[in-house]
Design a protein around this nucleic acid. Structure first.
Length: 475
RNA sequence: UCCCCGAUAGCUCAACGGUAGAGCAGGAAGCUGUUAACUUCAAGGUUCGAGGUUCGAAUCCUCGUCGGGGAGCCA
């Protein structure tokens, strides 16, 4: 019966028999094995006799997998309280040190580790990141389950291309070198697998709204695909998104939910993944030391997370945001590359100014001009703005985008016409407004952006196991 | 997609247009309660690819590939 290293270290007692299995992180002095089994960040020290069979000792190399039978004893050394005194060591899988691409003592760069993503889980950093990622995923389900939400699986393959959330990946079984054609030469999607043109989903929101008008409170948590040629540290072609949708909620309820949600997730990880977070905090602090003074962040990772848990997000309207920007020293000194005036979409530099310079905390911006937002957002009484809300996080930018939805059939149809979206194609969406329509609201939280925020990592490719980005679908 | 920067030993990085180096890893030997163990020795290179300039190119120029930072699009 195998005992996990996490259990040995947290039990913190001596004088009992165990079997431990894991991967060798380092082997010192022909005697001391630092063994890691992924159950926690820390290694357990395995001590073997100097007289151990040389054929075994030779195979205890970095990366090798071993099984150890022995006793947990109080350590004579300084670095640990308990260690495993081995009675016998079995090599499960050898690891040729000459060929093993992961050499931990060389401080491999994140970029290099990305090239060996199949092995990078075996590092402290990625071990911590992906344990935290898991904890966040679990906490998401727990948060909504505890509040009576129904977890809804919205389709991955969709025929709807009206969501306007970005470029889509086509799903087809047609031969691309010689597709069937209609009489006028267009590709005949009637011949395709689904009998129509289909794509990978860019959002589960429209389907989630259907669920919300029956269950009241639903959420989705699934993969999402955007075929945008985005090459940034914040974009993936395949990413995960959480989209709660709640009947009878207005925009203020929506903000409350999003804020409670984010704060809950951070608190969950602070309470349950402290060892990993402390390691990531230390990693980040060392990285910050490399930066010039004026680029360093004022707070450490733990401090930042605690601050977010303890403080309300700032809530401002789009119009307030524009006025703050117009009044800012940055604007007056012409520091902004893009001009500021009512009606523009806020640029990255504007969002960063609001979040990182002016408020220095997460900011919720509401009431955006209708012309820069999607058709389904509820029109405000002024006829110019919609009940949209974006949550902007320091260092990440937009982490949540949501709105109260337009529940009034006539208003919704008018907006769709203005934006050239077919009523026929979305008849099922409009039906929710035809039959027992209710006010409702929801939002989308980018899961990887949340993981970025919590772990303090800076590239989104380092918080998803196998990133899909333009020109990269390895593994 | 656009702008800027980069690619040199397995990894992290040096090298003014003039003999490609170091640390670590890996190999050999030693030491033995170590903590990224330590000490000694030996080995390790198509300088990303294709062209070009030059007596001579890692170094300069052009194109390409890949990576990083920023922007756009967004979550």
């Amino acid at each position: 019966m195998r005992t996990k290293i996490k259990d040995i270290l947290s039990r913190d007692e001596a004088d009992y028999k165990v079997n431990v299995k894991g991967w060798v992180r380092s082997f010192r002095n022909n005697q001391f094995i630092a063994l890691n089994d992924g159950s926690c960040l820390a290694n357990v020290q395995v001590v073997i006799d100097l007289g151990t069979d040389e054929n075994i000792v030779k195979k205890i190399t970095n990366g090798a997998s071993i099984s150890v039978d022995g006793s947990v004893v109080a350590s004579q050394g300084k670095g640990q309280r308990v260690e495993v005194k081995a009675d016998s060591v079995t090599i499960l899988g050898e690891c040729d040190p000459e060929k093993f691409p992961l050499q931990l003592k060389n401080r491999p760069s994140l970029e290099y580790l990305r090239e060996i993503a199949h092995l990078r889980f075996r590092t402290n950093t990625f071990g911590a990141v992906f344990r935290v990622r898991h904890a966040l995923a679990y906490a998401i389900h727990k948060f909504y389950n505890d509040r009576g939400f129904v977890y809804m699986h919205t389709p991955i393959v969709t025929a709807s291309d009206a969501e306007g959330a970005g470029e889509m990946f086509r799903v087809t079984t047609l031969p691309f070198d010689n597709p069937p054609r209609t009489e006028d030469g267009a590709i005949d999607f009637k011949e395709d697998f689904f009998g129509r043109s289909t794509n990978l989903t860019v959002s589960g929101q429209l389907e989630a709204e259907l669920g919300a008008t029956a269950f009241g409170e639903v959420y989705t948590f699934g993969p999402t695909f955007r075929a945008e040629n985005s090459n940034t540290a914040r974009h993936l072609a395949e990413f995960w998104m959480i989209e709660p949708e709640v009947a009878f909620n207005d925009i203020n309820d929506n903000m409350d939910l999003a804020e409670d949600f984010i704060r809950y997730l951070i608190k969950y990880v602070l309470d349950n993944n402290r060892e990993d977070l402390d390691f990531l905090a230390q990693r980040l602090a060392e990285e910050e030391k490399q930066k010039p003074m004026n680029e360093r962040s004022e707070m450490g990772l733990i401090e930042k997370l605690t601050f977010v848990v303890d403080n309300k997000f700032e809530r401002i309207t789009y119009t307030d945001a524009i006025n703050i920007l117009l009044d800012s020293p940055a604007y007056k000194k012409k520091k902004f590359q893009y001009d500021v005036k009512w009606g523009i979409d806020l640029q990255s530099e504007h969002e960063r100014y609001l979040v990182e310079k002016h408020f220095k905390k997460p900011v919720i911006v509401t009431g955006y001009p209708k012309d820069i937002k999607a058709f389904y957002m509820r029109m405000n009484d002024d006829g110019k703005t919609v009940a949209a809300m974006d949550i902007l996080a320091p260092g990440i930018g937009e982490i949540v985008g949501g709105s109260q939805r337009e529940e009034r059939l006539d208003m919704l149809m008018k907006r769709m016409e203005e934006m050239h979206i077919s009523h026929e194609e979305l008849y099922w969406y409009l039906d929710t407004r035809r039959f027992g329509t209710v006010p409702h609201a929801g939002f989308g939280l980018g899961f990887e952006r949340m993981v970025l925020f919590v772990t303090g990592m800076t590239n989104i490719r380092d918080v998803i196991p196998f990133p899909r980005t333009p020109k990269n679908a390895e593994f």
